[in-house]
């Protein structure tokens, strides 16, 4: 708990909240502009499909980038700036500290995804009468269902765990850029809904593979960190 609290002090919740608000503000403006840009033609058959597509192609890839940026800041930057040396030299268990950081990054990714999705989707539904995403507007209440919440939760979990793979890649080169670019790449793959219909590798199982890769990479990362010379 002490280690987690320290991470909180170092990275200041206010700063995280501010970037979260900026990210959501920018995403909302973009989505609003996009919804107004069709010149009266509905883009999707209904708001349910519209929201699913918007989440997959804009909101969730955006969450990947958000989590990747914070992953780079929380994990990689400590190595780049060498602030980690002071912590390690004071006798803090390397793997324990790494685990705390990874949990924090994952939790941040999950939380940011859930909150951003709910926020963006609610705003889109509220403004659906004034945008051209679908012919018929839809109320927030009628959209909220167990299936929807399940999809949001699953996606948040996928993003929160896959971003660990981006961190593991970044630590190899001590590069925040590698982490962010990797997170962006995962976001793009997510947006393209990569999958091979008719095979075992459909969209969901490809995403699951990334999640597993993220989890495996933490094992390698821990081992790498234990042996790492600074």
């Amino acid at each position: 708990m002490n280690l987690l609290r320290m991470e909180w002090v170092k990275f200041k919740p206010g700063k995280i909240l501010l970037t979260f608000l900026l990210f959501n503000g920018a995403a909302f403006l973009m989505l609003y502009a996009l919804g107004m840009s069709t010149g009266g033609m509905a883009m999707f058959p209904d708001m349910k499909v519209a929201i699913r597509e918007i989440n997959n192609s804009i909101v969730w890839p955006g969450c990947f980038i958000f989590a990747g940026v914070w992953g780079a800041k929380i994990f990689i930057q400590e190595f780049r700036n060498k602030t980690i040396t002071t912590i390690w030299a004071s006798g803090i268990h390397r793997s324990r500290l790494a685990a705390v950081k990874l949990i924090l990054i994952s939790a941040l990714g999950i939380l940011a995804t859930v909150l951003s999705t709910l926020l963006q989707n609610s705003l889109l539904l509220l403004l659906s009468p004034y945008t051209y995403y679908a012919e018929q507007p839809m109320s927030i209440v009628s959209h909220m269902s167990v299936a929807y919440m399940g999809a949001v939760g699953w996606s948040a979990l996928c993003i929160g765990l896959t971003v660990l793979l981006a961190v593991a890649l970044g630590i190899r080169s001590f590069s925040t850029t590698v982490t962010i670019v990797a997170a962006m790449a995962f976001g793009v793959i997510w947006a393209f809904q990569l999958g091979f219909p008719g095979t075992y590798f459909n969209v969901e199982s490809v995403r699951l593979l990334f999640v597993l890769a993220g989890l495996f990479s933490t094992g390698f990362l821990m081992r790498h960190i234990h042996r790492l010379d600074l």
Binding site: N81, H93, R94
Partner: peptide, 18 residues
């Protein structure tokens, strides 16, 4: 590595970073 002995050591290695 990860020894508790380090709690009795104060260190400043290379340029101090903060």
């Amino acid at each position: 590595r990860n020894s508790d002995l380090m709690s009795e050591v104060g260190a400043m290695i290379e340029t101090p970073v903060f």
